[in-house]
Each structure stands twice: as C-alpha cells, then as structure tokens.
Design a protein around this nucleic acid. Structure first.
Lengths: 157, 157
DNA sequence: TGATTTTTGTTGCAATTACAACAAAATAAA
DNA sequence: TTTATTTTGTTGTAATTGCAACAAAAATCA
C-alpha cells in the first residue's frame, strides 16, 4: 500500500522522468530528418490542425509564446511549414505544412506511436485506457494553474 | 470508448503537456529563492540522497550528463550544495546540501506537494494510487529505451 | 465614435541544454 | 601485471528556452 506522502511526490516526478526520457529519445531520432530539438512537437500539431495560429499552438503545447515563435520561425526557414496571412485578419498568420512537412509527418507519427507502445508494454487495453483518462484529468487540472501563473498571478499555498 | 489510435498518441502528449506545465510553474515560483530554471530538480534529490554523485543524479532525473554537471556546478557556486571528495575514490565527488540548501528544501517540497494536489484534484484515493502505479510502470518501460538510445544505440521500428 | 484592453507577433538579452571531444581514475579482462 | 574498457568528470561550441519590452492589429467598453 502506498501512503499519501509517497503519492504526493511521485506523480510529479514520474511524469517528469517519462516526459524527459521520451523527448530526449525523439530529439535524437528526429535529427535524421533535419528536425532540431523540440521541432517535432510543433510540426505534428500543425499537420493535424492546418491553419492554426502560433499563439494557440503555444497554449496547446504548453510552452512560452516566444519559444513557440522561434521554433515556428525555424520550421518555416527550413521549409517544413508556411505562414499564410489571413483574409480577414491582418495580425494573425495561419500555419500550414508544406509538402516537405507533410512528408515528414508520418515518420514522426510512427516514432511517437512506437514510443507509446514501448511506454505501454505490459499494459492491458483497459489499463491503457484508464491511464489516458486519468492523465487527461490531470492535464486539465494542471493547465489551469499554468495559464494562471503564466499570466503573472500568484498561487496561494 | 477510446480506440487504440487515440490512446497511441494521447499518452505521450498528455505526459508532455503536464510535465511542461508543472515545470514551468515551478521555475516561476522558485525564482524567489534564487533558484534558476531546472535547479530545483537537482536540489531536492541531493537533499533526499545526500552523498549522491552527479552521474547517478543525471540518470535519476533523465537528463544529459553535461546538463547535470553544469546545473550542479551552479548550485555549488550559489552555495546550495557542496561537492565533497570521497575517501576511497579520487574520481567521484559526493554531493551534499549546505545549510542554505537544506533551508530551501522544505519550500520546494511544499510547492511540489501543492502542485501534486492540484494535479490530483477531483481524484479519489484509489484513483491517485492507480495513477502512480501505472506511471511507475510507464517510467520503467521508457527509461530502458532512454538509456539504450542515449548510449548511441538505434531502436528498430 | 473614441478610448482602453486584449490578442498576436517580434526582437534583445541571458540563461539552460546537450552533443563532441577530451581527460583521468577505476574496473574488467588478458 | 599490463592492457583494454567503463565510469566519472570537465570544457568548447551551438543551439533552444523564456523573460522583458516593444509594436500593431483587433476586440471590448464607455
């Protein structure tokens, strides 16, 4: 039996270890496609939601606006995506994958799927499902605080 | 009902979003203790495992050896920890928190505990327990691949 | 309408991150 | 013991990351 104190620290640390491991692996494996650190994160989302703007992408990934801005800038320079201007709104730029970007997408997807299958090896279908649902709830809880703190507010505890 | 395809991508992404959110929050909140980005990760572990060497700490956190080296170097420069030489082994340096480091520890702990409680809000005790256990299995699965890839090996998929 | 606030985007810093490449001590193998 | 390999640590270099501070367009408000 696990007591509360153990759970307290473990969730956060386990998640951190898992995320860093998987991110590190992906970054190493995507170098062969000329994607530098972190870029795959943005590219997959742009491919899945073409026309998205970078502000929303940053929120989706949970990364600083300026970090996203530069990652996206680089994706554009290297020909993976385009920034298209909007008909009705002069301020926003809609992000669209190029042919090159679309060609890389399935390779990223395949790697991510494989990493997921590794992560879930030994899991039954229902265990995997339970985990996804619990994680989605955690994410929903956590993202509220993230936005709150990111905006300069102070949490009270 | 969730189908396999959704689960496939969701686990990895949910974990990534949660990890980045929590890390971002912590980094903002720890600035008041003069801890710069990422340093809290190392300091808590050194406090909980005094005498640890930095190679093991890097493995524990799942971060590059050289990243850990510089983070630890900075913790030392800023007086949070000491590097003690070992009696029997001239190569290794044992990491020990200073008074200052020990004074900050409970503050980090408190913040982490709070973030955990936020992450788990709405969870029953048994749900929280289930999540920890599933995450530990995921981490165990994933860290094997991380070490494998980090050492220069190529995964086949 | 006009003034104010929010959204979206960029650039200047200063810092972390990590790959390479090296060194030296410790361990394993011959 | 001598040689080879692994472990542990550092530094050079190049890149990402994110806070501040700014700008301009859009949305809200009075």
């Amino acid at each position: 039996m696990l007591n509360g104190a153990v759970i307290m620290k473990e969730i956060l640390r386990e998640v951190g270890m898992i995320a860093r491991s998987l991110d590190s692996i992906s970054n190493i494996e995507f170098k062969q496609y000329d994607l530098t650190r972190g870029q795959y994160l943005y590219l997959v989302r742009i491919c899945e939601h073409p026309g998205m703007i970078q502000e929303k992408l940053a929120e989706m990934i949970k990364v600083d606006r300026t970090t996203a801005a530069r990652a996206i800038q680089k994706l554009e320079i290297n020909g993976f995506i385009e920034k298209n201007e909007d008909q009705h709104n002069k301020k926003i730029k809609r992000l669209i994958p190029t042919e090159k970007g679309q060609a890389v997408y399935p390779l990223i997807k395949r790697e991510n799927d494989y990493s997921n299958s590794v992560a879930l090896s030994g899991f039954s279908g229902s265990e995997a499902e339970t985990l996804v649902k619990l994680l989605q709830r955690v994410r929903s809880n956590v993202e509220k605080d993230w936005e709150y703190v990111k905006k300069g507010n102070k949490r009270d505890y």
